[in-house]
Simulated scan of single mutants.
Amino acid sequence: MLSLTRRIREEILVIDRQTGEQIVIAPTAYRGNQVKIGIEASDRFKILRRELQGRERGPGPG
């Protein structure tokens, strides 16, 4: 795991070595002990919180 210190709008890039496609990650706000993070990626990537990985979503209400 890479651990970095970033200020607001200081971006981190994740680049696919084969395609050059990028994922941009940046802190957008701090409040108490929480950090808001912005992530930009193409539709090719599925982005979700780790605690939701593997959970199956049932049908919505109605």
Score class of each variant (00 low, 15 high):
residue 11 E to W: 02
residue 20 G to E: 01
residue 21 E to T: 09
residue 4 L to T: 07
residue 18 Q to S: 14
residue 21 E to Y: 01
residue 35 V to Y: 02
residue 19 T to C: 01
residue 1 M to N: 13
residue 11 E to T: 11
residue 27 P to I: 05
residue 21 E to D: 11
residue 41 A to Q: 11
residue 17 R to Y: 05
residue 55 R to D: 05
residue 9 R to C: 03
residue 42 S to Y: 01
residue 30 Y to S: 11
residue 11 E to F: 03
residue 60 G to K: 10
residue 35 V to E: 00
residue 61 P to S: 13
residue 47 I to V: 15
residue 6 R to P: 01
residue 52 L to M: 11
residue 29 A to S: 13
residue 49 R to S: 08
residue 12 I to M: 08
residue 9 R to Q: 09
residue 46 K to V: 15
residue 51 E to M: 08
residue 1 M to I: 08
residue 14 V to F: 11
residue 40 E to Q: 12
residue 23 I to D: 02
residue 58 G to T: 01
residue 22 Q to I: 07
residue 8 I to K: 14
residue 61 P to T: 08
residue 42 S to V: 10
residue 47 I to F: 06
residue 55 R to M: 08
residue 30 Y to W: 01
residue 18 Q to Y: 01
residue 6 R to K: 15
residue 37 I to C: 00
residue 17 R to S: 15
residue 58 G to S: 09
residue 55 R to S: 03
residue 20 G to T: 03
residue 37 I to Y: 04
residue 48 L to Y: 04
residue 24 V to K: 15
residue 9 R to H: 12
residue 19 T to Q: 01
residue 40 E to I: 13
residue 18 Q to T: 14
residue 5 T to L: 13
residue 58 G to M: 00
residue 36 K to E: 12
residue 52 L to R: 07
residue 33 N to T: 05
residue 38 G to V: 00
residue 4 L to S: 06
residue 2 L to D: 11
residue 4 L to R: 13
residue 49 R to V: 02
residue 19 T to W: 03
residue 16 D to G: 05
residue 34 Q to T: 13
residue 38 G to K: 06
residue 34 Q to V: 06
residue 16 D to S: 14
residue 51 E to F: 04
residue 19 T to L: 10
residue 48 L to R: 01
residue 10 E to H: 12
residue 11 E to M: 00
residue 44 R to I: 12
residue 35 V to C: 12
residue 28 T to F: 02
residue 35 V to L: 09
residue 26 A to Q: 09
residue 19 T to I: 09
residue 50 R to D: 06
residue 15 I to A: 14
residue 10 E to W: 00
residue 4 L to G: 03
residue 43 D to P: 03
residue 14 V to C: 03
residue 49 R to N: 06
residue 19 T to R: 07
residue 49 R to C: 06
residue 22 Q to W: 04
residue 42 S to H: 08
residue 49 R to Q: 10
residue 1 M to Y: 05
residue 18 Q to C: 04
residue 29 A to C: 11
residue 52 L to G: 00
residue 30 Y to I: 11
residue 38 G to Q: 09
residue 27 P to H: 02
residue 38 G to I: 04
residue 11 E to Q: 14
residue 13 L to I: 02
residue 58 G to H: 00
residue 37 I to H: 01
residue 45 F to E: 07
residue 11 E to Y: 10
residue 22 Q to C: 05
residue 5 T to F: 09
residue 25 I to N: 02
residue 47 I to Q: 00
residue 51 E to R: 11
residue 39 I to N: 02
residue 50 R to I: 04
residue 36 K to R: 14
residue 56 E to K: 06
residue 61 P to F: 06
residue 1 M to R: 07
residue 48 L to A: 15
